[in-house]
Amino acid sequence: MLCRLRVNGETRDCAVVPHTTLLEALRYALGLTGSKQGCDKGDCGACTVVIDGESALSCISIALACEGRDIVTIEGLARNGIPHPLQDALDVTGGAQCGFCTPGILMSAWALLERNPRPSRDEIALALSGNLCRCTGYTKIIDAVELAASQSAERP
């Protein structure tokens, strides 16, 4: 079937069988391999994308069900090749070790900051509670979100 998805501001068509998840469509049909597959079924958050402003799990979303919705993936965060402050902050704090949970973490964090630009550490931890990280113990990830939020606040 033809599946028309709006991803990172662009309308993209792909041919998929109905039993295609959004994650499969993004990764294998559209070449957006930034979103990762970790657990198969919604338990780890590595596949997190933002749909209509809210974090969502692309590995348990049926691609066809996402037609007409506004999807943002990790590839959509940087603007004109310049990393988003969150991406930069995560790099500075060392919040990405193996980097595999990182895209999902960033999408959850981005959705949080869009809704709540100055979250507390507890609010950050809560927003990231559906994203499993096996490398960092989360400390430097939470540091990064705090850092990005404080930097955004300092900007005029």
């Binding site: 993936t73 990393p83 790099d91 980097g99």
Partner: peptide
């Protein structure tokens, strides 16, 4: 920063 850090955070 790690040399591959930005590649990882940008997917």
């Amino acid at each position: 920063r790690k040399i591959e850090g930005l590649a990882k955070v940008t997917g």
